[in-house]
Design a protein around this nucleic acid. Structure first.
Lengths: 224, 224
DNA sequence: TATAAATAATAGCATTACTATCATTTTTAC
DNA sequence: GTAAAAATGATAGTAATGCTATTATTTATA
């Protein structure tokens, strides 16, 4: 059985849908590779074009600029994570287990998912960790929000908030706590890697569940 | 009694110490004003120079580039917050009260502190909220870390972690929790303002202690 | 009052972030 | 199988950005 999952993306993110053509898929695939390798700052459409053997103008036919390309892959990532959480929690009824699963999915090492041929989720996880916040740390936040570019993130946040409320219907801060889970699951892993003294973990330790354990304990004691 | 506080800054942040000359102080003061008004993306040394009536090259004599200028003011902010926390907790012995005070200082509205004439802390708070993360979301993170540019943030993190450990000596995740406090105290306020559906608060509500209340409850149930 | 230090004025250059045009190839429709 | 349409490639150009360099002028200091 070979299943390929396809995520329906917000059409305002692109000028031409990259998932419908070979060149488009190459753009996504190699944008992820290049941003992962050199960071968003060093990344531009000229380099991307050279890397995949096309022209700068060719990329501009798909995306208005690199911020929207970043938003595309970051939005894709959040939708994919929500899908994974829903998938793994299928047929599980205990709210406690569901919430724990979600926390672990969000804060543990991701491996490349072969059901998405031109997207390397392992690289994408790193990109979201170190560049993801830049999608909303911009003066365009209002405009982007109107265009629903943050919908995948908000949907996931609401999904987690619902899991929290299922477990603890009287807890008053389900959304703030969901946002805390989302944010800290990525940023503690970023710090663990780059500024480990801001955490209680070190990057050398093999155990990749440490961040999840911290968050899990914090969350469950908060909503108990 | 008029007291002016002065924070000793890391000398590698600048080429010439801006706090020692009139032009230098103007650079800091107006950089804060302009970054607050238009965001870091739109901000550059040419605009800053025009705004204060000097030349681009003049600014470059003080700072190598705008990232280091941002680091300067963000580092200043974290040192100032640590100072405020220490100041307000002077002669208070109960660890519980100290930690609560720290949480409130970090997550509630800041007003301009007149003991720092050319720095508007109110504007600076907004800048740290919406641009602060960009200081470490860069490929230069390793190099900046070596140069100790993140020391003020780390010191504050450790300060909070110590307050946590004083209250609850057996708690295993003092640093991660301190980082969570620091990060969420700013980012929840950012979301409250810009993407309120990610929080349980709305920007219209007058009460500015809501974020603090959420964090306080979460923290104290975690370390109980 | 000489000297050094700081600032102003101006120029210039490589890179970035696009836009435009036109030729060529590939796809699709009949 | 061919014509039309769509997508891509090749090339050029422009305004803004992020610097560096040079020289002149002002200001502080000895």
């Amino acid at each position: 059985m070979e299943i390929y999952i396809q995520i329906k993306m917000n059409e305002s993110l692109f000028l031409r849908n990259p998932e419908e053509t070979d060149l488009g898929k190459k753009i996504i695939q190699n944008a992820i590779i290049l941003i992962h390798a050199h960071g968003l700052e060093c990344f531009n459409f000229k380099k991307l074009a050279q890397h995949i053997g096309t022209t700068e103008a060719g990329i501009y036919r798909y995306f208005e600029n690199k911020q929207l390309l970043l938003l595309f892959i970051v939005d894709w990532y959040w939708s994919w994570q929500e899908y994974r959480i829903a998938f793994h929690n299928k047929n599980i009824s205990k709210p406690e287990l569901k919430l724990k699963k979600a926390i672990h999915i969000l804060s543990e090492t991701v491996v490349d998912d072969i059901s998405t041929p031109y997207i390397n989720e392992k690289l994408l996880y790193d990109i979201v960790m170190s560049e993801g916040a830049k999608t909303f740390l911009t003066k365009h936040i209002g405009e982007y929000n109107k265009a629903k570019f943050f919908k995948p993130y908000k949907d996931l946040c609401l999904h987690i908030a619902d899991l929290i409320s299922d477990y603890s219907p009287n807890y008053k801060y389900a959304r703030s706590l969901a946002t805390t889970i989302l944010e800290m699951s990525h940023s503690l892993n970023f710090y663990k890697k780059n500024l480990p003294s801001l955490t209680d973990f070190s990057d050398t330790k093999k155990d990749d569940t440490l961040v999840a354990q911290f968050i899990e304990k914090m969350v469950f004691s908060a909503i108990q």
